[in-house]
Design a protein around this nucleic acid. Sequence first.
DNA 1: GGATGCCTTGGTCGTTCGCCCAATTCTGAG
DNA 2: CTCAGAATTGGGCGAACGACCAAGGCATCC
Lengths: 193, 193
Amino acid sequence: MTTTAQRGEQVRTRLLQAATELISERGWSAVSTRTLAQRAGVGPGLVHYHFTSLQALLTEAATQTLHTIAEEATAHLAQTTPHEGLALILGDLDRYPGDDPASRLVTETYLAATRDQDLRRAITDVLNLLRRHLTTWLTANGVPSPQATAATLAATLDGVMLHRALDPDLTAPTVEPVLRRLLTPDDHQGAPR
Amino acid sequence: MTTTAQRGEQVRTRLLQAATELISERGWSAVSTRTLAQRAGVGPGLVHYHFTSLQALLTEAATQTLHTIAEEATAHLAQTTPHEGLALILGDLDRYPGDDPASRLVTETYLAATRDQDLRRAITDVLNLLRRHLTTWLTANGVPSPQATAATLAATLDGVMLHRALDPDLTAPTVEPVLRRLLTPDDHQGAPR
DNA sequence: GGATGCCTTGGTCGTTCGCCCAATTCTGAG
DNA sequence: CTCAGAATTGGGCGAACGACCAAGGCATCC
């Protein structure tokens, strides 16, 4: 029971937690070592003791948090039909208020990933994990072209998160019925081609 | 023909242009007055001569650019069927490479809008304009619940932009067939409820 | 009980930030 | 030709930035 080493690990965890909060609140490139240390309740020098750089800290915090979100979102999908599962996912999404920290963190991380190779690799892995879970679920339910559908659905969910930051009314009751049969007019119209 | 006043207006325009470029390249909160002036080829002091603050400059540049994008995306939609129009929009989206400046600008602006009231109002106006155009188009084509569909479609398009920054393969050929009948399993399955 | 690590503190270094302003250049009106 | 005024320059202000480091705890092992 090495108390000192445990405390060190606690500080590391608190720094990661503070990073996820501050990325959401201020934006990726506006997180500084000093505000980070203050939020975590530690000295400014500890940031560069536990992590090689500020970017490394942010990358680890964001990757970890996004991984958790992706797993939670798809955790209970296995035994549901597409419509049930859709309601489940959108319900989870609605638990967050309009400008919630988690949504902003996702978007901030996506943007930062386009400018940082290490982060990009890490986030692409998480995105592929999410897509794989969705694909498995859709395949088991006989949805056509499950891979493309999973990729599009993942993009739509993130898009809804993004737009909800501007329009809090974009919740499940609005989105759910649309996602069931998006852009499919009544059949008597006679689709072209 | 006041040459000096015209030159002043040109500098203002160049500053706005430089702002849109730098927001995409470095991110909203990483644009500084000095890099901005250097990109525009003018002295650092001119930023605060033509604009009241750096934020005001960025807000004006982003709002103006997003307005243009929204108008262009919906310009030729009027006389198309939903499937034709969808192909048109997605084709426009594909003209940009994976990590194109326009996409990043949109996302950067959305995020910045959650932290700046003035920007938020301006961007909400643009988003509502885009939704209104889509709603009109969908209504004319008999698509059910056109308002909700327009809101969801707008979110999906932005989500695709966001994901394409990480996955350049998420292009029209992948997305288009899915958006036609999203999440609708073959009818012989017997949808619940 | 002294020595050996890990953890933590608090400060310094050089750089860059947004904003401001005195001084200078230039131009169109009288 | 003169001059008022708009446009522009370049430097200065205090503050905050990322990174770094000497110095000091403090628990754990010989």
